[in-house]
Each structure stands twice: as structure tokens, then as C-alpha cells.
Amino acid sequence: MNGYIRLIDWISEWSGRLVSFLVLPLIATIVYSVIIRYYFGGAVHWAFEMSLFFYGVLIMLGGAYTLKHQAHVRVDVLSHYLGPRGRCALDILSFLIIVAVCCVIVWLSARSAWVSTLRLERSALQTPFNPQIWWYKWMIPLSATLIGLQALAEIAKVLRLFRSEAQE
């Protein structure tokens, strides 16, 4: 169990740190677009879609990293009134819901991404850039898989903590 937790934590940490570098081309793309538009009166057709791609991948693939570091938005109203056992139960229930939702997202989005790949789907924005987006659709099941695996690791951590508190 500890090996699984370490492996998933490592994958979440690695993927989160790796995609965090996407903020640099995201900023560069937006700054370049603004400079061209306001100072030179030109239009950069590819900038909007590229910024969507950078931001989308950054947010989606950073989800497992965020979950690992407990940085998602949480409402702690209930846990404030619960004891340690109640908090553990609430955490496990929350993570089980995350796993269930991730399974549904993976199932539905993988089918959609597969169809998109077979069609070599292009952007619906109809800009002159018109990039292929099939690869982008694969980020959805990939990110849901990473988040689901991290949620399972978090369940294992909560159970390990619960067992250690019960033995004391």
C-alpha cells in the first residue's frame, strides 16, 4: 500500500510541476497578442486558441497535484463539528465521490476523444489557424485518471492515519 501511495504521489507531483511550466508560454502568447493588437493594429489568429490549449492543459493536468497538496476548495463546515473519526469518514466519502465522478468522466470523455481522433477533429472556432483538437480532448480522460488515482491514494492515507490513531 505504501508503494502505491508513493508512486501515485510521485506521478501527481511530477505531472503538476511539469505542467506548471505551461504558464510561461501562456503568458508569452497573451502578451504577444496584446502587443500586436494594440501597438501594431494586427490580429494574431492563433493566440486565442493557443492560450486556451495552454490554460486548459495546465488546469486539467494540475488537478492531481492540487489534490495531493490539499489545495482544492473545501467547505469545512461539517468537519469543524466532527471528531477525528467523523472527519476520516467524511474525507473517505468525499474521495469516493471524486473517484466515482472521475470514472464517469474517463468513460464518457475517452469515447468522445476516440471519435475525435478518428475524425482528426479541428477547432470549432473557425479561425484561419483552425488547429486539430483531437489531442486536446485526450487531456480530459488523462486528467480524470490522474485525479481519480490521487483520490484513491488519499483514501489510503486517511485509512492509514485512522489506523494509527486507533492504535494509540
Rank of each mutant, 00 (worst) to 15 (best):
M1E: 09
M1W: 06
G3T: 14
G3Y: 09
G3E: 15
G3L: 10
Y4V: 10
Y4T: 10
I5K: 01
R6T: 14
I8E: 00
D9A: 03
D9W: 01
S12C: 04
S12G: 02
W14T: 14
S15N: 06
S15A: 11
L18F: 10
V19M: 00
S20L: 00
F21T: 05
L22Y: 10
V23Y: 09
L26D: 07
A28E: 00
I30C: 15
V34S: 08
R37L: 10
F40T: 05
G41Y: 09
H45M: 10
H45Q: 12
H45E: 07
A47N: 09
F48V: 12
M50S: 15
S51E: 04
S51K: 03
L52M: 13
L52N: 07
F53D: 00
F54A: 02
Y55V: 13
G56K: 00
L58E: 04
M60A: 15
L61M: 11
A64T: 14
A64Q: 10
A64S: 14
A64L: 08
T66C: 11
T66Y: 07
L67M: 15
L67W: 12
K68W: 08
K68I: 10
V73Q: 04
R74Q: 12
R74M: 12
D76M: 03
H80C: 01
H80G: 03
G83P: 11
G86M: 12
R87N: 13
L93Q: 04
S94C: 08
L96G: 11
V99H: 03
V99E: 07
A100R: 05
V101E: 08
C102A: 15
V106K: 02
W107S: 08
L108S: 13
L108F: 11
S109A: 14
S109N: 03
A110D: 03
A110E: 09
A110K: 01
R111V: 10
A113D: 04
A113N: 05
A113L: 09
S116N: 12
S116C: 05
R119T: 10
S123T: 06
S123Y: 05
A124L: 13
T127A: 03
T127Y: 07
P128Y: 06
F129M: 07
F129Y: 13
N130C: 02
N130V: 03
Q132M: 12
I133A: 00
I133T: 13
W134H: 14
W134L: 00
W135M: 10
W135L: 10
Y136P: 00
Y136F: 14
Y136M: 05
K137V: 02
K137P: 08
W138G: 07
M139K: 00
I140C: 01
I140N: 02
P141H: 03
L142A: 14
S143N: 01
A144W: 02
L146Q: 07
G148Y: 06
G148Q: 06
L152D: 01
A153R: 06
I155V: 13
K157S: 05
K157H: 07
V158A: 13
L161K: 13
F162G: 12
S164F: 13
E165I: 11
E168I: 11
